[in-house]
Simulated scan of single mutants.
Amino acid sequence: MPRQPRRRSYDQHCAAARALDLVGDRWTLLVVRELLAGPRRYTDLHADLPGVSTDVLAGRLKDMESAGLVTRRRLPPPASASVYELTPRGRDLLPVLRSLAAWGAPDLGEPRPTDAVRAHWYAIPLLGPLAELGAGVVQVTLDEGEFHVRIGDDGSVEYGDGVYEGGRLSGGAGDAPDVRLRTDAATCRALAEGESTLAGAIEAGRVTLERTARIP
């Protein structure tokens, strides 16, 4: 299947139009969502973007590299793979994804039979509620998988897929998470839609929370 041509510019002297020139193509912001969780191999990106063709994904990544949103680097030995990661310009899209998630949360509802689900897809709408726990790393466990959120002393937030391994979200040796939190997808949706607060979900037993010994 031939690669789809890149969308032409809107040719409008408007900041919103310029932004859509760069990220308005189908799948682009979802690629950003995946890479906000840390560097990913092409095969991992394809696995967590069900429905995208290999040609379209390769094309989007190439366009995003050209736009300065994504870089590709080779992992050091013994790994023999390349990973894609966001540039600072690409990471600046996190507030955009947070706003989109907040706007779309009322329409989320129950998963449809055809819907794919990944645990880390709940990270973005939960960044606000989890920030209420204070600075540190929160490990979140759902039946669908795990993700972690890092909250800075200044209130900044970032997230990663899977189990926290210490150091930066992309990996490294070191500390355990400061908080371990277990809940379910239904509670995540209630928090995202504003139907419940984190404190209320904990009180109702819908969220269990354990602080590690290194947190007073």
Rank of each mutant, 00 (worst) to 15 (best):
A37T: 09
L130E: 13
L169A: 14
V138D: 12
I215T: 07
T114A: 14
G104I: 01
V32H: 00
V52F: 10
I202Y: 00
A123Y: 08
T208S: 12
G104Y: 04
V70F: 07
R98T: 12
A67K: 11
T28G: 04
A119D: 12
R18Q: 13
P216Q: 03
R8L: 15
L93V: 09
V149R: 10
G136V: 15
R112S: 14
L126A: 02
A17W: 10
T212R: 13
E34Q: 14
L133F: 13
D25N: 03
I202A: 08
E132Y: 00
H148P: 10
L181N: 06
D161P: 00
T28L: 06
P95N: 10
R7E: 15
M64D: 01
M1V: 15
Y122M: 12
R40G: 03
L49T: 05
R214A: 11
V140D: 15
V207T: 03
G104A: 10
R73Q: 12
L126G: 02
E110R: 13
L181T: 03
A119H: 07
V138W: 02
A58E: 11
H46F: 09
Y159K: 07
W121E: 03
L127N: 04
T141H: 13
D11V: 10
G38A: 06
I124P: 11
D92Q: 05
A81E: 15
A102C: 07
A37N: 10
G167W: 06
R72T: 12
R98I: 09
A67H: 14
T54G: 05
D161R: 08
L57V: 14
V149D: 12
E193S: 13
A15D: 11
L75M: 13
E158T: 02
R74V: 10
A186I: 01
G134V: 05
A123H: 08
G24W: 07
